[in-house]
């Protein structure tokens, strides 16, 4: 039972993290009773689970994740959704509409068309088949208006913050709606388009400075400054 790295230290692929009765968490791999890092990231050991927080990487769907997708194609009974991942998602009509429809009579394009932005949840994914989404649920469905941003999926936890601290602060300070998909897509909508501009800047700042301490406070200050600038300017 030996731990070879300090918690939150930068580790590289192939670096020995721990030996003994530990569990190999995300971004690590096991050889015998040794656990190694598989990516460039920050080591984390919690309750005997050794893991690495990746600094870069793509989005791999997980059941229960909220994602923002763009419709790319449709068939009589389902849509194909780009979820910013190596795997395209499928949204079936039964998982999207409250009642069954007759595909012979109705064209599903009138509900979601190609290019529409939707927010939904991953309900099935096991790597042998592409993920399935549902848009049944509170707040799910088509997104209209607002703006869509893309950030690195590894930075999503930082944008949400501990128990939503960062995202709730942004929503409160700017009085705007923000939806963060686990796949790195962020949808922002505010009544005042200038506030939307600020929110876009803030999200970009969080992405750029995700690793620098004291971010929440700096973001709060930035929002205040931007807001006062708008009020004095207009």
């Amino acid at each position: 039972m030996t731990v070879h790295v300090d918690r939150r230290k930068l580790v590289l692929p192939g670096e020995l993290l721990a030996e003994g009765r530990f569990e190999a968490g995300p971004n690590t791999y096991r050889e015998g009773d040794k656990i190694y890092s598989a990516v460039v990231g920050l080591a984390e050991i919690k309750n005997k689970v050794v893991s690495v927080i990746a600094l870069k990487g793509c989005y791999i769907p997980k059941v229960g994740d909220v994602v923002i997708g763009v419709i790319t194609d449709y068939s009589p009974t389902s849509w194909q959704v780009d979820i910013n991942s190596p795997y395209t998602a499928t949204l079936q009509v039964v998982d999207a509409l409250p009642r069954p429809i007759d595909p012979a009579k109705e064209n599903i394009r009138k509900y979601f068309d190609v290019g529409d932005v939707i927010v939904g949840e991953v309900i099935v994914f096991d790597k042998t088949r592409n993920p399935m989404l549902t848009t049944k649920g509170k707040g799910y469905g088509k997104l209209t208006g607002g703006r869509l941003l893309e950030i690195s999926p590894t930075k999503v936890p930082r944008l949400i913050g501990r128990r939503g601290s960062m995202i709730n602060m942004i929503k409160k300070e700017l009085g705007c709606q923000v939806i963060v998909g686990q796949n790195g897509r962020v949808w922002i909508s505010a009544k005042n388009s200038k506030y939307e501009d600020i929110a876009v800047k803030v999200v970009r700042k969080v992405e750029m400075e995700a690793q620098i301490p004291g971010l929440t406070e700096r973001v709060r200050k930035m929002i205040k400054e931007e807001k006062s600038r708008i009020e004095s300017g207009s």
Partner: peptide
């Protein structure tokens, strides 16, 4: 990369 961020990240 520094530490504080991770503290917040881990409790997402």
């Amino acid at each position: 990369v520094q530490e504080e961020s991770v503290e917040e990240v881990s409790g997402d």
